[in-house]
């Protein structure tokens, strides 16, 4: 019912489900050990940014295009190439089809 054989191993989701349930239980226990007596509406609920002032919400949120900045900058060469490939020109879409057709014909027919 649960196990699949892959030829060189097996996979059983039940083990993982048990592991996940145990992890969540642990998290819950640890969380309930925390202090509950903090004072609302005081400084205590403010975020602490090593003493820096807190900017307005919109500036604090990291934008999607800034995430993975290091990854994309390091692979700049690849990305400029790929951006050049994706021209958005319908003729190029047809051209790619013809190219792949030619490659397949060459390999298959030789």
């Amino acid at each position: 019912m649960f196990t699949i054989e892959t030829g060189s191993g097996f996979w059983n989701p039940i083990i993982w489900v048990i592991a996940i349930v145990v992890t969540f239980l642990l998290i819950y226990i640890l969380r309930s050990l925390g202090k509950k007596e903090y004072k609302k509406d005081t400084e205590q609920i403010k975020s602490f940014l090593s003493g820096n002032p807190e900017y307005p919400k919109e500036k604090m949120h990291i934008k999607a295009s800034n995430l993975y900045w290091g990854f994309t900058t390091n692979l700049k060469g690849l990305y400029t190439l790929l951006r050049k490939m994706h021209t958005g020109n319908t003729s190029d879409y047809v051209l790619w089809f013809v190219i792949i057709l030619a490659i397949f014909l060459l390999v298959e027919v030789i």
């Binding site: 951006r83 994706h86 021209t87 958005g88 020109n89 319908t90 003729s91």
Partner: peptide
């Protein structure tokens, strides 16, 4: 012009 009709790219 097909070269200008490409707002969707990348």
């Amino acid at each position: 012009d097909v070269r200008k009709v490409r707002r969707l790219k990348e």
